[in-house]
Design a protein around this nucleic acid. Structure first.
Lengths: 213, 213
DNA sequence: ACCAGAAAGTGGACACTGTCCACAAGTGGC
DNA sequence: GCCACTTGTGGACAGTGTCCACTTTCTGGT
């Protein structure tokens, strides 16, 4: 239907862009079924190539998953950016700061609700921590964590947060929205309607803002 | 080494307690490697029984995992209870309420740090929501969620929380600690030292307490 | 223009998983 | 003592990740 190009058997022996094709296929599987659903052989099948061909581009299934996770993280970052763009820096820096924080939280949560599979994949197995890996970023060149830091910086600069309270505040804020997202996606709250989750998210952001200082 | 009893080939054709043996084996696998590591065939092997024997007690691997998850949830509840027992209701109900909330948060997080595999298993795939399943509880007969509710009730009763703010507050509080735990276990913070995670946890609980009202 | 060597993909095999089927071995009620 | 029922066995199958030896194609140096 969509990328028929990869299904019709190619004429050339070389695929030309296999690595990308595999990641794309893997991304689709992650979208549909989360990290456990990204399956190496299936990816090669969709790329119209033998299973072992994948090993020319990835050391194994784990590395393929790593690449897919990276792609998922980029999507998360993009969603946050989109949300942040709704607010412009105006004459009230405190309002701007608050809106930034809200945008990060709600962008994060919104993506989790919209693309559960990708979200779960993005935060599944141990990635190499805070690597400033440019592959995880969107157009602003910041990963989700850095976008959050930015929002918190604005809080501090506008006087909403003391220097002391600012320290490590990203972890506190992040935990909050991430936790709600996970509980709603694969935890005990998975039957809660999305609107309610998002409503809780609103309260959560307020709680963070109030509780941080 | 430990439960040799299940390894030496039994004399009777019947195992006698196979279901339990399978869950126990599964629990050990979950402890060591999280939900993905609980493998049906391996459980039967450890129980000294043929793979198919498991199907007399579970419809399939998923059901075995369900049972293991239930057991993990019990452990979480037990850990929270242990933490709560440290504080007794005294002449200051507000302090008691605060301590209860702290106990829930820190008990939860502490267990996550001590038993990452079990914790991840406990909150992995969709369980049947808020079923008051007695299998998930510890000695007080309350599951982790209910223990949290109890702590929040104490907050309200002691006047620390208004009726309006009390509503759905468990979700907000829960999200917070759960999020930190997940980020620390299988998220980008997995290299953060446990002491730091727990220190963040302390701040987090304070933030919740301050932010909820 | 050649041609060696690297890069990319193929085919076959292996061990492992979950699961299905038909069958055997004990057990309990009448 | 028999017979139905539960529990466990054995053999099979498809699907997975991965290793090995092999072939096909591309590329760069002479």
């Amino acid at each position: 239907m969509k990328k028929q190009v990869s299904l019709q058997k190619r004429k050339t022996f070389r695929h030309g862009d296999l690595r990308n094709a595999l990641v794309t296929a893997g991304l689709e599987m992650a979208r549909a079924g989360g990290p456990n659903a990204v399956i190496l052989r299936e990816a090669t099948r969709q790329a119209g190539v033998s299973p072992n061909a994948a090993y020319r581009h990835f050391a194994g299934q784990t590395e393929l998953l790593d690449a897919v996770r990276s792609a998922c993280l980029s999507r998360v970052a993009a969603a946050i950016e989109d949300e942040m763009k709704k607010y412009k820096a105006g004459r009230n820096p405190q309002a701007f700061a608050r809106n930034s924080l809200r945008a990060v939280g709600m962008g994060y949560l919104g993506f989790a609700m919209r693309e559960p599979g990708m979200f779960r994949t993005a935060f599944s197995v141990p990635p190499p921590v805070h690597s400033p890996d440019p592959a995880n970023t969107a157009s602003m060149g910041l990963n989700p964590f850095q976008l959050l830091s930015l929002a918190l910086d604005r809080m501090q600069e506008s006087g909403l947060l003391s220097k002391k309270d600012r320290k490590n505040a990203e972890y506190l804020a992040w935990s909050t929205v991430h936790g709600l997202a996970m509980l709603a996606l694969e935890g005990p709250l998975h039957k809660m309607p999305r609107e309610m989750v998002l409503a809780l998210g609103e309260r959560l952001v307020v709680m963070v803002e109030r509780g941080l200082s």
